[in-house]
Simulated assay, not measured.
Amino acid sequence: MEMKFETAMLRSYFIAGTQDIKDERPLEEVLKQALEAGITAFQYREKGPTSLTGSQKLELGQRLKVLCADYQIPFIVDDDVDLAIKTRADGIHVGQKDERVTSVIDQVGNQMFVGLSCDTPDQIQVANQIAGISYIGSGPVFPTGSKADADPVIGVDGLAQLVKVSKLPVVAIGGITEDNITELPKTGVAGTSVISMIAQSDDIFRTVKTMNQTFSD
């Protein structure tokens, strides 16, 4: 039974891989806390010099998928069609520098929904013409330390412009904190996707509650 995409899934969207957990806790433990706290989506993004590969990456992905399924929250894989299919992911997220989104849509068919990163109005205009994309991830809104290859910061105004151009719901990403998240609802985004805001939070329940309250209907 595949999970249908809903815009509400973008409200509090947690992205993480083992490289994002800076203490001794296993990723599963952090994810379980985030699920308990009320995140609306999880993306498994295992990237970087210390990240898992091969069977370790697959086995962890399978365990994380089961956890998400227990809470009926979508399990999304970052840019790895093979892993997404093997873990029976609910969605896959593709970046502009990754495999072309049209080829990903062809490969996953109706098995899962597809998200695409877009940081310029031109990229969004292209995405508007492609059938099979469910949502857009836009940013970085603020300066970020989580991604070594992050694009230039677009700011709150830049984000608002992208939302205006997009026919699809947009989730904000990049440098979002409990202090600056309140600037985002006015842009028209559906929610925020964060790595360190949850992965390095001193109180995951408080953090996720802040995310959900900021974007409550």
Rank of each mutant, 00 (worst) to 15 (best):
A131F: 04
I85A: 13
V108K: 11
N128H: 02
A131D: 10
G115R: 01
Q123N: 10
K86A: 15
D90E: 12
N110C: 04
L116Y: 08
Q129L: 13
I105Y: 01
G109M: 08
Q129F: 01
I133H: 05
D106Y: 06
I124D: 09
G132E: 01
L116D: 00
H93K: 09
F113R: 01
R88E: 15
L116W: 02
Q111L: 02
K86Y: 06
I133A: 07
E99F: 15
M112Y: 00
H93R: 11
T102A: 05
D106R: 15
Q123V: 10
Q123K: 12
Q107G: 00
Q123D: 08
D119K: 12
P121W: 01
Q107E: 12
Q125W: 10
D90C: 10
C118D: 02
Q107S: 11
I133D: 03
Q123C: 07
Q107V: 03
V101Q: 09
I85T: 14
L83G: 02
Q107L: 14
V104G: 04
A131Q: 13
A89I: 11
V101G: 11
L83C: 11
V108R: 12
H93L: 13
A131R: 15
F113Q: 00
Q96D: 11
M112N: 05
V101Y: 05
G109R: 14
A89S: 13
T102Y: 00
K86P: 05
R88L: 08
E99A: 14
A131Y: 03
T120Y: 00
P121V: 11
R88T: 14
Q111N: 07
D90A: 08
R100D: 15
Q125E: 11
V126L: 14
I124Q: 10
D119S: 13
N110Q: 14
V108N: 12
P121Y: 04
V108H: 12
N110M: 07
D90L: 03
D119I: 10
V114Y: 01
S103N: 14
G95M: 09
A127F: 09
I85M: 15
D98S: 14
D119W: 00
M112C: 07
V94F: 03
M112A: 14
T87A: 07
T87W: 01
A127M: 14
D90M: 03
G132Q: 09
R100G: 13
D90F: 05
T120G: 00
V104D: 05
I92D: 04
C118M: 01
I130R: 03
T102R: 13
G91P: 05
G132F: 06
D98R: 07
I133T: 04
L116S: 05
N128W: 00
C118K: 02
Q107Y: 06
R88C: 10
I133S: 03
A84Y: 03
S117V: 12
A131P: 09
H93V: 15
S103P: 02
A127C: 13
L83Y: 06
T87N: 07
T102F: 02
S117D: 01
A127Y: 07
G109W: 05
Q123L: 08
N128F: 03
A84V: 06
T87M: 06
I133N: 05
F113W: 02
Q129M: 12
I133K: 05
D119M: 06
D90K: 08
F113A: 00
D98E: 14
L83E: 07
Q125S: 07
I124N: 08
Q111H: 03
T102L: 08
S117M: 05
I124E: 09
Q129H: 12
P121Q: 06
T87D: 07
R100W: 08
V126G: 07
